[in-house]
């Protein structure tokens, strides 16, 4: 087990390097110059050249990447080219917001998906269950940003009901719509997994054995079928986590939440390389960590994997 984790961690290093190097190259090779785009742009070509030397922008790309990596190891993400604020501070204020919104969305989605999935599997012959299953298929084809705009239209403007605020993230009421909209596609996807997982489990021998022992149908469902259906779900969830994070880019824009998504969006617009790289690093870390967590969780859930039986 320990060795397996060590191997996984070792494999993460080159992956991390590839992701950050690619982003670094793309961000820096992009046309446009942060010094000319910033508002207090230095007037003369001379000052621009000086600023370029000071910021190290005149060095070769590889050298700059290595310098950046060296600073990263020491926990230094650099300073924004646009407003000279430390990148760590910017991410420090943006990250909690995104984590709050996407964390709540993920939690909500899991709860709803498990409850709904089990219910649908247990009652799969009922007409309403089929209707809900069909509705979930429909839901997966509907973009979440449209849902977000429609939700604002219905619940946050005088045309509908003004239950929720239109923009920002100041109180609990501000969270309702963004969380619901971000959870939407995840609910649609996860419920289908739970549904089919539980239904498959219900057809297997161990469930028949449990029923034969005279256990109640409810006990069979929640203590025998559901845990087995949840094992693959853990992996799915781990691999899906970065996508929830990514989905928050659009959601943050719709709801005006100053999180990682908006930070990245604005930094890309102003060619603020250090900020772009900071966000990319966090995204890469989130991606790799959730991959690792997915592996570990499925090992914990299914000891056969840890012994290397399937690898």
């Amino acid at each position: 087990m320990g060795r397996l984790i060590a191997t996984r961690l070792g494999l993460m290093v080159p992956t991390f390097l590839v992701i950050t190097a690619l982003t670094f190259a793309m961000a820096h090779l992009a046309p446009g110059d942060p010094l000319l785009l910033s508002e207090d742009a230095p007037a003369s070509a001379d000052t621009v050249a000086q600023a370029r030397t000071r910021l190290g922008l005149d060095r070769p790309l590889l050298e700059r990447y290595v310098t950046w990596l060296g600073r990263l190891v020491r926990g230094d993400l650099g300073v924004s080219v646009v407003d000279r604020e430390p990148v760590r501070g910017k991410i420090g204020t943006a990250l909690p917001r995104t984590v709050l919104v996407s964390g709540l969305a993920l939690l909500m989605a899991c709860l709803v998906a498990v409850a709904l999935g089990v219910l649908l599997a247990a009652r799969h012959e009922a007409a309403w269950a089929r209707l809900v299953a069909a509705a979930l298929t429909l839901a997966s084809g509907v973009p979440s940003f449209w849902v977000a705009v429609m939700a604002l239209l219905l619940f946050a403007t005088p045309r509908g009901v003004e239950w929720f605020p239109l923009q920002g993230l100041e109180g609990p009421a501000h969270l309702v719509l963004p969380v619901a909209c971000l959870a939407w596609p995840t609910v649609a996807m996860l419920t289908r997994y739970v549904h089919t997982g539980v239904r498959k489990a219900l057809e297997q021998d161990f469930v028949r054995a449990a029923r034969a022992r005279g256990l109640s149908e409810r006990r069979v469902l929640y203590f025998h079928a559901l845990p087995n259906a949840l094992v693959p779900l853990v992996t799915v969830l781990g691999l899906h986590l970065p996508h929830v994070f990514a989905g928050s880019v659009v959601i943050e824009r719709v709801f005006g939440i100053q999180g990682m998504g908006l930070l990245a969006f604005e930094a890309i617009g102003t060619r603020d390389y250090p900020v772009v790289m900071g966000v990319a690093t966090v995204m890469a870390a989130v991606t790799l960590t959730s991959m690792l967590l997915a592996d570990l969780a499925s090992m914990a859930a299914d000891p056969r994997l840890a012994s290397g039986a399937r690898r």
Partner: peptide, 24 residues
Amino acid sequence: SRLIEVASTFPTIFFLMVIVAALR
């Protein structure tokens, strides 16, 4: 295979934002 593994988990929209913004 490694490329597939990485690319399938890294959120596409973020990559796209960087590349498309690069194209102006």
